[in-house]
Design a protein around this nucleic acid. Structure first.
Lengths: 115, 115
DNA sequence: CTGTATCCTTCAAGATACTG
DNA sequence: CAGTATCTTGAAGGATACAG
């Protein structure tokens, strides 16, 4: 069977990976764990990534119900992004990553080769 | 300051993400949580990825001390991959992903658009 | 400020064939 | 069986300019 435009992920881990499919998205969640942020703030926290990419990742996260986007009718425009309730659930995943990172760094250091 | 060939990741989450930087590596860890596996078995569990990619990811994981590679001097050759002690620590990360995926699926289902 | 729209580059990964 | 060696391609992301 070939699914043409939809896939069904039986494994919850695969589902999670499909939602948080790259580093930049996890970073956005990480940033938003510190409270809601403006578009500009997210871009600045993300020096290695272009604005275009930030926009795209924010859209994907919003489409997946991980974050919520609020537009304020002001001049100049203001848009705030915040984690949704389900997005907040990702904190546990991030926490476990944090814990692993600390254990790993204690054993092997935190220096990494750049590819 | 510009680092030319090494980066130092202060944030443990960033470090973890740098080690487990894509879905395929997390999947390999996931597969190996079920016990040590042969190269062939890993390739087969990974129908969507080519052998070349599996080889590459295994090498990276080994270089990062996440997995251990054992060569048996047999004919035909046999190579087994297993999680290292630190690699086993990743189980907690996978567990939290599993938990999140279940919560998410209960709320939004497990069907995903294919890009 | 918060995005869109193009164009362009590069790099990861697929296909395939070959080796010890 | 467990890889390595090439070649190729497609999509992600950078740079830049523009819009509401």
């Amino acid at each position: 069977m070939i699914t043409t435009d939809v896939k069904e992920l039986q494994c919850p881990v695969a589902l999670t990976l499909d939602i948080i499919n790259d580093k930049s998205k996890i970073f956005i969640v990480y940033i938003l764990l510190g409270g809601q942020k403006r578009f500009k703030d997210i871009c600045e926290a993300f020096s290695q990534v272009t604005q275009k990419t930030v926009t795209q990742k924010l859209k994907e996260l919003e489409a997946d119900h991980i974050i919520e986007r609020t537009v304020f009718a002001e001049v100049p425009p203001r848009v705030e992004y915040a984690l949704s309730p389900i997005g907040l659930e990702l904190k546990k995943v991030l926490d476990s990553m944090h814990a692993f990172g600390e254990v790993y760094a204690a054993k092997y250091g935190c220096k990494r080769d750049v590819k």
